[in-house]
Amino acid sequence: MTQTKPKRDFFAVRSPVGRVQGTISAIGIWAVFFGVWILATSLGWVNELLVPSPQKVLAATYDLFVNRGFSSDVLVSVWRVFISFAMACSVAIPLGVAMGTFASIEAIFAPFVSAWRYLPAPSFIPILLMWFGTGEAPKLALLFIGVIFFLITLVMDHTKNVRKELIETALTLGASRYIVVVKVVFPAALPDIVTAMRQMLAMAWTYLVIAEIVASTTGIGAMMMRARRFLKTDEILSGIIVIGVLGLLTDVLFRVLHRRLFPYLEVKH
């Protein structure tokens, strides 16, 4: 006897969609996007100088990587994000955990950190250029400033969310303050801290592009500004796509990392 599947109402409120419908929907929206793009360029609805066809962008991407050494620009960009983000994390995570654990530390740093959060990082570009010249330092500094204050606040908030009972349990088991912080508070907050890192990494990419567009001769952003000078819209769009793909890749990487580091979050009875 075969069971007949009840047909799902398309506008069923808050009921999950099946795998097939999900896949079709996801592919569909992109098919429509590229379809409109291809139509618009091949039928001449738009100026091809300003909006190149997807085929042209693809060809430009290939040319950039194979003949023009674009991969070194990409590597420079990735390296900048990685180094500055690592530096920001190495300060923000210990400080955020300390602020979330000890009210006395929070009382010192919170007024400072929350003020800095409202200063847009790109407003520091002119002064960073004067201080650090045109080398790597101003770019790394911009990314560092852009990320660190938000990261500190997020880490602090996640640390504060560690339930009081967990801390009290450890204390009544005879744990020292050091053990409470290192073996209970930190591991309890860590999954959320890694999620915060994932969110902030996206922000680091944003500042990277700003830094490279404004003041750089290397990197993805710099390539895009060069392309602008020669009216190479296809190369500009290539740059955007590469940044998008890199962002997506790091996001996936962090998700895999999250699953690997915290297997206990996946299992439910």
Binding site: E168, T169, L173, A175, V184, P187, F262, Y264, L265
Partner: peptide, 27 residues
């Protein structure tokens, strides 16, 4: 607080990142 007086709370207090055995060994 001290080791001589153990406390069990109403809320779940398991250390989720540790196995059951490691939880029991924690103190």
């Amino acid at each position: 607080p001290g080791q001589d007086r153990g406390v069990v709370f109403q809320a779940y207090t398991s250390f989720d990142w540790l196995s059951v055995r490691k939880n029991v060994e924690f103190g």
